[in-house]
Amino acid sequence: MDMLYITGLHKRFGDKEVLNGLNLTVPEHSIFGFIGKNGAGKTTTMKAVLGLLKTDAGEIVVNGEKVVYGQTSTNRYIGYLPDVPEFYSFMTAPEYLRFCGEVTGMKKSENENRCRELLELVGLGDETHRIKGFSRGMKQRLGIAQALLNHPKLLILDEPTSALDPVGRKEILDILMAVREQTTVLFSTHILSDIERICTDVAFLNNGVVGVQGKLSEIKTKYRSKEYLVETEREADLLILQKTFPNMQQTGRNQLIFHESHYTIFDMLCFVTEKHISIVKIERTEPTLESLFMEVARK
């Protein structure tokens, strides 16, 4: 079943068309990476899902229920962490979580337990100071705790790692890995290494539409690079190869790369056998998300 389903979402600010018929499907129990450049419209999309932003056209369905602007009933399925979470800074972390629990109508004892459990999970169990003095990373972790409070079916995080140092990033990613059993995670980012680390699904947002989306592994296969790298033992062999295959390019010591559109790997291998060229390695280069992203962005 799909936890979140968006079709034909349009949103313009003034004469600027930010979302231009966006379609997105987030399957249940995925960790879904929502990738896009700064200003691509990631935050706009998420706010629309939460009913915080009036859209111009399109339909958003969360857990089978339609989202209506200004109304909050679908938000009972959702835990949300905004890009810059702002809490009541005069409260302490436990006070804030308890307040959130009371607002959602949790029972008192259940609320107490859940708060303690979550503060432990995000490493704020011993924190007694008011939120006023919290660091960026601490706020982000408290933000995840409040988002998880009422066992959401869908956890939406807006760039949870962007403003953090590598240690803070790892902490957040570890927490997300830890909760994937209980919920579906949708998070936006422009940091591709985060995606590679934890995501099962991805979508690339570009020019107001989702360019490519699907399982990370499938996308990687689909966009598998058609480039090969050959490394020879002797330098002289490079010249022999290049004479027959002029479109091969030298990239390093004794290394050549070529693209499948120019020569097939089989022709190359026949030639190598025929000429008894000693090979150190032949490999198909891995597509990086970077190159994928560039390819999507170029379209």
Binding site: G70, T72, P82, E86, T104
Partner: peptide, 15 residues
């Protein structure tokens, strides 16, 4: 201005 209401509202309190 601080955006503190956003979280409370997404927690489901009616406006």
């Amino acid at each position: 201005q601080s955006g503190t209401l956003v979280l409370a509202l997404t927690k489901g309190i009616q406006r």
